[in-house]
Design a protein around this nucleic acid. Structure first.
Lengths: 236, 236
DNA sequence: ACTAGATGTGACCATCGGTAACGTCTAACT
DNA sequence: AGTTAGACGTTACCGATGGTCACATCTAGT
C-alpha cells in the first residue's frame, strides 16, 4: 500500500507527473519555435505538443509564462555550456574566448528560440525573460569575484547587464547575417569582453592574466548546475 | 481635353504637407507610448493624434513601420545628444563617460519610448528597429576609426553591435531598477566601454588617450540629422 | 461504488492589427 | 465657370490570436 497517508493520496498522485508533462510542453514549444519562428502562436505550440490550447493553459498561466519557461530552459542550456567551456585550463583570456565560442555554438543550435531570449518582456508583465535570468546569475558571479579581488562591488550589476546585453545583441547580429565565421566573431567578441574586464581589473591593481594555469581561489564560478529537474538535452 | 502631360500642381501640392503631418503622428506616437507604455495600440496612438486609425495607415504601412519611425526619431535624438557630449574637449576617457551620461539622460526623458528601441523587430518583418539603426551608424564610425588607426576593420561590426546591445541592456536595467545614480551608472558603464576599446587599441599599438585635447582628423562623426530631410535612405 | 483530480475537446469571447466603402474638402487644371 | 486629383476623415467590418467555458472522460485512491 502507499506509504504516504497524507490527507489524500489522490491529490499527491499527480505531482510528479505534472512536472514531467510541463517539461514536455516546454520542449514542444522549443520545437515549434525552432520551425515557426519566435512568433509561434499558442495554438501552434499546442498542436506541436499534440494537445489543444486549454491543456497548455492548465500548465502555464499565459503565453508569457510559457515563454519564460522556454527562457529558463535556454538559460540553463547556455550557462551549462559556457561554464563548461570556461572551466577548461588555459590562460584567462583564452578561456573568455572559449566561453564566447561555446555561447555562439549553443545559440546557433536553436537560433529561433534564442531570439525569444533576446526579446524584452512585454509591458506590464512582471515575469522576467531569459536575459534577466542570466544577468542575475552573472551579476552574482561578478559580485563575488569583485569582492574577492577587493574591487568595487557596485560594478557587478551594470557590468553583468552589459555583458548579457552585449552577448544578446552580437549573438542576434551574428545569427541573422552570418558575415563572419563563428571563430572570428568569437575572437572579436572575446577580445572586447576581455579588455573590458581585465582593463577594469588592472585599474584596481589586479592582474587577471596572472591567474592563468593554476585556478586557485580566485574562481567564484562554481559549476552550479541549476538544480532544476530534468535533462534538457534529450531532444530530437 | 485632358493632357497626358503631368501638369500636376495638384499632385505636388501635398508633398510638403505630408512630411510635417507624418512627423506630427510620430510625436503623437511618442506621447502615447510615454503614457501608455510601449504596447500602446494603434487605436491609442490615433486617438492621441486626434484622428482615426485609417488616417494613420495612410502614412504608415503597418504598425512596425510606425514603430520604426519612432525608432528613427529616438535614434536621432540619442545620437545628437551623445555626439554633442563626446565632442567636448577633454580626455578621451572622460569623453566616453560624458557620452554615456548623455545617453542615460536622454533615455530617462522617454523611458517608455526607449523600451521600444530595445525591442527586437518582430519575426519576418524586414524593417529594422532603432537598435539596428544606431548599430549601423556606429558600425560605420568604428570602421572609419579602425581604418584610420590601421586596425582590423572586421571588428567594427561586432563591436558596434556589442556597444549598442550593452547600452540598451544596461539602459533598460537602469531605467527599471534605479538602484544607482545616473552618474554612478555612467561611471561604471563608461569604464567598461573605455577599457574594451582602449585595450583593443593598445593591443594594436595605438594609444587612444594620446589624442586627448586636439580632436583632429579622427572624427568621422557627422551630425547628420536624418528625419528632417525626409528620405532617410540617403546613403547605405 | 464513489470521489478527487487530472485528462481531453469544441465552441466561444475580447482585443487588436488592418481594410473597405463611402463621403467631404480644396487647390489646381481646363 | 466646372472638373479633377489628391488629400482629409469616419464607421463598420474582417481575421488572427490570446485566453476561457462548459462539458465529458479516465484512473487511482478512499
Amino acid at each position: 500500500m502507499a506509504p504516504n497517508v497524507k490527507s489524500d493520496g489522490r491529490t499527491t498522485r499527480w505531482e510528479n507527473h505534472r512536472a514531467t508533462r510541463r517539461a514536455e510542453f516546454v520542449q514542444a514549444a522549443v520545437r515549434a519555435i525552432d520551425t515557426l519562428g519566435p512568433d509561434a502562436s499558442v495554438a501552434d505550440i499546442a498542436a506541436e505538443a499534440g494537445v489543444s490550447k486549454p491543456v497548455l493553459y492548465r500548465y502555464f498561466a499565459d503565453k508569457s509564462e510559457l515563454h519564460a519557461a522556454v527562457g529558463a530552459w535556454g538559460t540553463d542550456l547556455v550557462l551549462e555550456r559556457v561554464i563548461a567551456a570556461v572551466l577548461v585550463p588555459a590562460s584567462a583570456r583564452d578561456r573568455v574566448t572559449a566561453g564566447v565560442e561555446a555561447y555562439l555554438t549553443t545559440i546557433a543550435e536553436h537560433p529561433q528560440a534564442f531570439l525569444l531570449l533576446t526579446r524584452q518582456h512585454a509591458g506590464g508583465d512582471p515575469l522576467a525573460a531569459g536575459k534577466d535570468l542570466i544577468a542575475t546569475k552573472l551579476s552574482r558571479m561578478l559580485g563575488d569575484a569583485l569582492r574577492l579581488l577587493g574591487g568595487d562591488t557596485g560594478a557587478a550589476e551594470p557590468w553583468a547587464h552589459a555583458v548579457v546585453g552585449l552577448g544578446s545583441s552580437v549573438g542576434q547580429w551574428w545569427l541573422e547575417r552570418r558575415t563572419m565565421s563563428r571563430a572570428a566573431a568569437a575572437g572579436y567578441l572575446g577580445e572586447f569582453i576581455w579588455h573590458a574586464l581585465s582593463g577594469a581589473a588592472a585599474e584596481h591593481g589586479v592582474d587577471l592574466s596572472a591567474l592563468d594555469p593554476e585556478v586557485g581561489n580566485v574562481r567564484p564560478l562554481r559549476t552550479e548546475r541549476t538544480e532544476r529537474a530534468g535533462s534538457k538535452d534529450a531532444e530530437q
